[in-house]
Lab assay of single mutants.
Amino acid sequence: MAAGGDHGSPDSYRSPLASRYASPEMCFVFSDRYKFRTWRQLWLWLAEAEQTLGLPITDEQIQEMKSNLENIDFKMAAEEEKRLRHDVMAHVHTFGHCCPKAAGIIHLGATSCYVGDNTDLIILRNALDLLLPKLARVISRLADFAKERASLPTLGFTHFQPAQLTTVGKRCCLWIQDLCMDLQNLKRVRDDLRFRGVKGTTGTQASFLQLFEGDDHKVEQLDKMVTEKAGFKRAFIITGQTYTRKVDIEVLSVLASLGASVHKICTDIRLLANLKEMEEPFEKQQIGSSAMPYKRNPMRSERCCSLARHLMTLVMDPLQTASVQWFERTLDDSANRRICLAEAFLTADTILNTLQNISEGLVVYPKVIERRIRQELPFMATENIIMAMVKAGGSRQDCHEKIRVLSQQAASVVKQEGGDNDLIERIQVDAYFSPIHSQLDHLLDPSSFTGRASQQVQRFLEEEVYPLLKPYESVMKVKAELCL
């Protein structure tokens, strides 16, 4: 049975990233139509530049190519590739079939990587351009969430054990800070992308030097003109047959890092959902379990974690691919890159769409948070109580021993009897502590235990987050809708 299948058929496997999760716009960027249309555009740009620099290419040939950029006979191309065992030459023939007058000058002087690699770089750039505003929107939604809850005390956790208090907004800023680093890295790697350009079979530009009869300047002009037509500021000066596969490492490393950030955020949300302090959106008709109707599973956060793990592992592909590119190139890269580049971007696209949807509907339960604080705060307040007693004339050592005994009794009630923490009640009825009984409410005010959390939130948002989001103001209103 021949390899390949009808990918629109229910009898043929289709990647869930495309069929179930990723956005239509990201799927289109990695589609065959987008790819092969870009090949034709690159052939047109090459012909236009070659004509401008004096090669015998007519206006009629150029116009014929322009008129057929979208006229792609995919069936013919597939048949040609089956016959020739070469995808680029299959599309040269297919393009030439609908451009008979231009057929002889299509791909003039070029090698397969002229269309293959340059198209990949265009796709990487455009895919990054799709991700950047999506990530900015996630940051914006979380920034709104953090600002609104900047002063809401909550129990902090280290080692997932109760620690000092923080605020809900401050905790959210930990998430935002990681995503801001990801946004900066995505922008950097996007701006650092260079075009492969017009380089020939081993990167020496020998074929173009021959076409222009040894004119170095025209060869350099050709490279520059096509690079500018493709919208790049610069091209690699040095290439082998391909652009260095280190570029793929750079791009997928940034995406993998984004995956790590999203995994951490969504894990926190899942843990908070278990504590009943916070939940992701839950639709009115949504079913959490087929057997347990009360369940409210954090399905979206779980999906993000599941896909983020996949995204983090994909960076190993370009690392290994770059390491086995012998001399000017081997074909070890080809099949692998067809999979890992598309999957990385479709996965990143999915987790950003999902995280935006989550961040637009996060639900906080202040009463649950308050109750958990009441359970733990008495123990945390013991040092403040000791200091207040010393100020009232008591002995630190005597007070410490009193607190120690009462704390152990209260802990026994919590752990052995399943009761509430009654340390404060014990202190309130103990005559030894009568000098500070009137101060206990103040000493137990949760806001006095959150330090500068709310001020940190305000400063972080104003100095770091809002300036970073400013270039994306025009796209901030787009909502994230999930079908599944």
Rank of each mutant, 00 (worst) to 15 (best):
R245F: 00
K246S: 04
Q205V: 06
K101N: 01
L443D: 04
N384S: 07
P24Q: 11
W45K: 14
R338W: 00
K66T: 12
F232W: 07
H97W: 13
L44Q: 15
L174M: 14
Q241M: 08
E25R: 15
E425W: 13
T167K: 01
S438D: 01
R372Q: 03
L193E: 12
F449K: 13
S151Y: 10
S359E: 07
D317R: 00
V324C: 09
I105M: 13
V478P: 15
C27E: 07
G419R: 10
R33Y: 09
V324H: 12
H91C: 07
V29Q: 07
L362V: 08
C483H: 15
D445T: 13
G451H: 00
M389A: 07
P293Y: 07
I427E: 02
T158A: 03
K82N: 07
D398C: 05
T321C: 07
D144T: 11
E283M: 13
Y432R: 07
L46R: 02
Q51D: 01
H7M: 14
Q221E: 11
R396F: 04
P56T: 02
K82R: 12
L132I: 07
F195C: 15
C305E: 07
S395F: 08
L42M: 15
K367M: 04
S412A: 08
G419Y: 10
C305G: 10
F195H: 03
Q439L: 12
D422Y: 12
L152M: 12
E277W: 03
E228A: 12
L209Y: 06
K470V: 13
M225R: 08
R137W: 08
R337T: 03
F460C: 09
C180P: 03
D268Y: 02
H7S: 14
S112T: 00
E383W: 03
A273C: 12
A206T: 07
A410H: 07
Y13V: 15
R372G: 04
T111N: 07
V324A: 11
R190A: 13
Q161H: 02
D129N: 11
G203S: 02
I339S: 10
V251D: 03
F327S: 07
L128Y: 15
W326N: 08
A480R: 06
A388L: 10
V364A: 04
N421A: 09
T242I: 09
F345L: 12
E25G: 09
P446H: 13
Q286A: 03
S140T: 14
S290R: 02
W45G: 12
G96V: 14
S19E: 14
A78T: 11
H97Y: 12
I385Y: 12
L132H: 14
H93T: 11
G231A: 07
R194W: 03
Q286V: 03
Q356C: 14
L44P: 06
Q439I: 10
K170R: 13
K218Y: 15
S474N: 12
S306M: 03
I265P: 00
T202L: 06
E343L: 03
A78F: 09
A388N: 10
I351V: 10
L174C: 15
T201G: 02
S31K: 08
L258A: 13
L444R: 02
D398I: 02
D317L: 06
N118V: 01
C266E: 06
K134L: 06
T167A: 02
Y294M: 02
Q456M: 11
I427D: 03
S474F: 14
L121K: 04
A411R: 10
W43I: 05
S395K: 08
F95C: 03
V405Y: 07
A49Q: 01
W175K: 03
